[in-house]
Design a protein around this nucleic acid. Structure first.
Length: 265
DNA sequence: ATGTCATGATAAC
DNA sequence: TTATCCTGACATA
């Protein structure tokens, strides 16, 4: 489930449960031995940049990246941890278990600065989007499909949001970055902010407006337009799939025609 | 029991 | 480009 919205939501939920509290920390799996250094420390705050989560314990910082498989879930207090739990954080009445992360490590300031510097703009960050996002996109011959997954450009976008954003702005995934019109990019960015924020609130990805959702169909799949669908959620055409940036990319050939076709009309 | 696939990213060829 | 790491749910046998 981890795209940027998941990680920002985790930052919020973990802060609500642990911020200002002394926590117990352990690594039942044993692959994060430094957990003992956190034992009894107070969590100052948490924050997220793109898909990276940071837990700040005054003088120590934990960096977590969920990767494709990672999950950080609240479990029944004191429950027997499954053997794969890399990190368990708990107070007397609250327990969170982290499993399957790509990264769970202590991170010093230099490494943090370096990491932040290689991440692009996060649509969920409050800061104004840097000009470099458009500049780089507009100069690139790489496809918009590949660019959207590039974390040094768009921090927090993942494979689901990529497909859905391209659908919503009607862009064919192969469109070179340099051919994306400025207004389309601006719509894309605004949509990314809106959808990710909505994802944080719902704690799941929802891209279909509430009004368009069929009441009877509440499964997650029904709330997306093209991702992992066989037919387009808007026009019903067969959804096409291609591979872009080593991931499966779904798009509607009708709603997302190649850009030269738009000009040809 | 075994195989497949996944909302990620990196290192090596 | 491909291989690799991380885990678990579900399908197939």
């Amino acid at each position: 489930m981890p795209e940027g919205h998941t990680v920002h939501r985790l930052a919020r939920d973990l802060a609500r449960d642990f911020s200002g509290r002394r926590v117990s920390a352990s690594s039942p799996q044993g692959r994060f031995e430094e957990a003992v250094r956190l034992q009894g420390r107070t969590l100052s705050r948490t924050h997220a940049i793109g898909k990276h989560l940071f837990l700040e314990f005054r003088d120590l910082r934990v960096h977590v990246h969920l990767g494709l498989f990672g999950k950080f879930r609240r479990v029944r207090a004191g429950a027997e941890p499954r053997p794969t739990v890399r990190l368990r954080l708990s107070t007397e009445d609250i327990t969170w278990d982290l499993t399957g992360p790509t990264a769970c490590e202590l991170m010093d300031d230099d490494a943090f600065d370096a990491l932040r510097d290689r991440l692009g703009a996060d649509p969920l960050a409050n800061e104004v989007r840097p000009k470099s996002t458009w500049t780089r996109l507009h100069a690139s011959r790489r496809s918009i499909g590949a660019l959207l997954l590039d974390q040094s450009l768009f921090a927090g976008i993942g494979n689901v949001y990529r497909a859905e954003l391209l659908f919503l702005v009607g862009l064919h995934p192969n469109t070179p970055g340099q051919d994306v019109p400025r207004p389309t990019f601006e719509r894309l960015w605004r949509l990314a902010k809106d959808l990710l924020q909505r994802g944080v609130e719902a704690n799941r990805i929802i891209t279909v407006p509430l009004a368009e959702r069929r009441p009877a169909a509440r499964s997650r799949r029904e709330q997306l337009y093209v991702y992992r669908r066989t037919t387009c959620g808007r026009c019903g055409a067969s959804v096409a799939r291609t591979t872009s940036a080593a991931r499966t990319l779904y798009y509607c050939p009708v709603c997302q025609p190649p850009i030269f076709a738009e000009h040809a009309q």
